[in-house]
Design a protein around this nucleic acid. Structure first.
Length: 477
RNA sequence: GUCCCCAUCGUCUAGCCCGGUCUAGGACAACGGCCUUUCGAGCCGUCAACACGGGUUCAAAUCCCGUUGGGGACGCCA
């Protein structure tokens, strides 16, 4: 059975790169009817934060990427938080040490850094020179007596390592170019390379789907899997994603977080859909896909090798498509949740019905929400052109006529804009813009927006009359 | 510097493995038109790409070599 994992380190909010990696793992697991595991890689105590771990799980849940095993739900091969697995790493490290596959290194970080800079300056590969590999007992004791602490390094065997990457094909590395690397830091915690291999081995991970930045780490991991006695999993290295400018999506320019999109009102299913399209494409030309569609169509074979750049315009397009696919009731519920409105607000569904086609994100509803919610129009603070429009003599005539028509109309069915409009056209002899723009301005303070025949019933007779009156008052001043 | 990965419209991509069907397809954007009281949406249309140079071949976006460009790794970060 396929077992995959998403293993973020909680050093910040879940960003788009993380989310995409999580998504592809999830899609693969769901398509293969396998297991999706969440593992928190918090071995770097200084940089990791519990609040970030919590935020990440929340964001993953929001995206709909549910996991079968993880810190909160448990599972048979836990714990799923690396900070809780220290004894396990200790045990495996001791085993490597006693088998002569690892050795203590007494070099200080300053010494290592110095040598690295030196090598770089000479144009040499800045790798560790394995100098502590063959230390005599005497040397070791001497370093210990000097009070030096030691880290544990893995003895990298010679030869080459090759593997078949599921997206890149055959890849080969010369291990002679890889220095012995640290697997346990001097403070006693495992490094990323070590923890990952121990965990993936113990957790029965069958496929490692991760970013391409790990491609050249893979030979290290493969030799570690060998030494640890685990069968190495399959690997699939995802291409990276770039920023909008074409540059890289780095931590530096703070890769946009999933929650920033959520706050902007992007639908979770739209973000998932968009992210899936970044580096993967379905067999047919359809691009607007539900989570179900994605799961059923997903295949690692559809993954792209080259880097993809973010395109917010396209994200918005996808978002708009998903919003439009929602029933008014459903969309109203989402909007109510986003703005913490009472979901039973009676006019909300009607409003949504009226403006649905105008929305690309949930927050786009805000100006329309205001149209309904505004208590007083306060024309003094709205756009200059709207103010001028309302002051115009012609407009005032239209509004007077409108007032009369509205006042006359009504009944059990509410205000019917069609008949009012006919009425109005007759009494003023106007039509089109000249007739409707003043009405729109008085009712919404805007010169554009959703169709009036949708807005008018929404506002109701009382509020319409009040607003028209306000507009007329303002026009006088 | 060394090693590894990548290279099709501005952007996401199909095609490449198994050369001819590719005067390179789709989508977003841009631009134009239709519809519309307006914006948007919708519909229709236009513009737009095989990084470069060598091979191989009757034929290359597709295979091979090189160049250039971009990215990654070489950390007691992950």
């Amino acid at each position: 059975m396929v077992r995959v994992r998403f293993a973020p380190s909680p050093t910040g909010y879940l960003h788009l790169g993380n989310a995409r990696t999580a998504l592809f793992n999830w899609l693969f697991a769901r398509h293969e009817k396998g297991a999706f595991i969440l593992r928190i890689e918090d071995t770097d105590a200084a940089r990791s934060g519990e609040e970030y771990a919590a935020a990440m799980t929340e964001d993953l849940k929001w995206l709909g990427l549910n996991w079968d095993e993880g810190p909160d739900v448990g599972g048979s091969v836990g714990p799923y938080r690396q900070s809780e697995r220290t004894p396990i790493y200790r045990k495996y490290a001791d085993a490597l040490l006693s088998r002569g596959l690892a050795y203590p290194c007494y070099c200080t970080p300053q010494e290592l850094e110095g040598r690295r800079q030196e090598a770089l300056a000479k144009g040499l590969p800045p790798r560790y020179d394995n100098r502590c590999r063959d230390l005599s007992e005497k040397d070791r004791r001497r370093f210990q007596d000097e009070g030096r602490s030691s880290s544990l390094r893995f003895k990298v065997r010679s030869g080459t390592v090759s593997f078949r990457d599921l997206v890149r094909g055959e890849v080969q590395f010369d291990l002679g170019l890889v220095g012995d690397f640290v697997i346990v830091k001097s403070e006693g915690t495992p490094t990323f390379h070590f923890a990952v291999c121990v965990d993936d081995g113990l957790m029965g991970i069958t496929h490692v789907v991760r970013g391409e930045d790990h491609l050249s780490n893979t030979p290290r991991h493969i030799v570690l899997f060998e030494a640890l006695g685990f069968k190495a999993p399959e690997f699939a290295h995802l291409s990276m994603i770039g920023g909008e400018g074409g540059g890289l999506l780095s931590k530096r320019d703070e890769a946009p977080s999933v929650r920033s999109y959520r706050a902007r009102g992007i639908l979770a299913e739209a973000l998932v859909n968009y992210l899936a399209l970044l580096g993967w494409s379905p067999k047919d030309n359809r691009e607007i896909l539900t989570g179900q569609d994605l799961v059923s169509q997903f295949s690692l074979a559809g993954l792209t090798k080259s880097r993809a750049a973010l395109d917010h315009k396209k994200l918005e397009y996808v978002s708009g498509q998903h919003i439009r696919a929602l029933e008014p009731q459903g969309l109203a519920r989402r909007i109510a949740a986003h703005y913490r409105l009472n979901p039973d607000t009676p006019w909300l569904v009607e409003l949504v019905r009226a403006v649905k086609d105008h929305l690309v994100t949930l927050t786009d509803v805000e100006p329309y929400l205001k149209i309904v919610q505004r208590e007083t129009m306060d024309f003094g603070s709205c756009a200059r052109e709207t103010q001028e429009l309302i002051r115009r003599e012609e407009a005032r005539k239209v509004l007077e006529a409108f007032k009369t028509s509205v006042a006359r109309s009504g009944g059990p069915g509410g205000v019917d804009f069609h008949s009012i409009r006919q009425d109005l056209a007759q009494s003023t002899g106007l039509n089109g813009k000249a007739l409707l723009l003043p009405v729109r301005a008085a009712l919404t303070r805007e010169s554009s927006g959703p169709e009036l025949n949708l807005i008018v019933p929404l506002l109701g007779k009382e509020r319409i009359l009040k607003r028209v009156e306000e507009a007329l008052q303002f026009g006088k001043s």
